[in-house]
């Protein structure tokens, strides 16, 4: 039995790849280097933030390319690279049931508590 895996991409991508087309994850085109997602930590103590993507043949090259493309203006002190095919994204069609139910649940914001004066930095 052939199991079709629905592969959802994210971001600005062509219609036919936008998920829901029921296509199976295709093996990468050999002529194209794999795509990598790059995360950069701007300074010690902060999280790595997604800064963009790039092409590279392997992880070592991805990190070096990221160094050249995304940290040339002193943007970071640490780089993570993840091959894009390992990123799983939610389906935009699910937005209604995923995100809209949260809209009328403002009580989930911790704004209903009275803070004692002594508590700072909240």
């Amino acid at each position: 039995m052939k199991i079709a895996i629905r592969k959802f991409y994210y971001g600005d991508i062509p219609e036919d790849k936008a998920g829901g087309a029921g296509e199976t994850a295709r093996s990468e085109d050999k002529a194209q280097w794999p795509l990598w997602e790059i995360f950069v930590r701007s300074k010690q103590g902060l999280d790595h933030k997604h800064v963009g993507s790039l092409h590279a043949t392997d992880a070592a090259m991805a990190i070096e390319n990221a160094r050249d493309v995304y940290t040339r203006r002193q943007e970071g002190i640490s780089i993570w690279a993840v091959e894009s095919k390992y990123i799983h994204a939610s389906n935009p069609d699910d937005a209604e049931c995923f995100y809209e139910p949260a809209e009328d649940k403002i009580y989930r914001h911790p704004t209903f508590y009275e803070l004692p004066d002594e508590v700072n930095h909240m």
Partner: peptide
């Protein structure tokens, strides 16, 4: 040859 290496060599 690719954008990333174009940036690398010009860096």
């Amino acid at each position: 040859p690719v954008l990333e290496q174009d940036i690398a060599i010009t860096n």
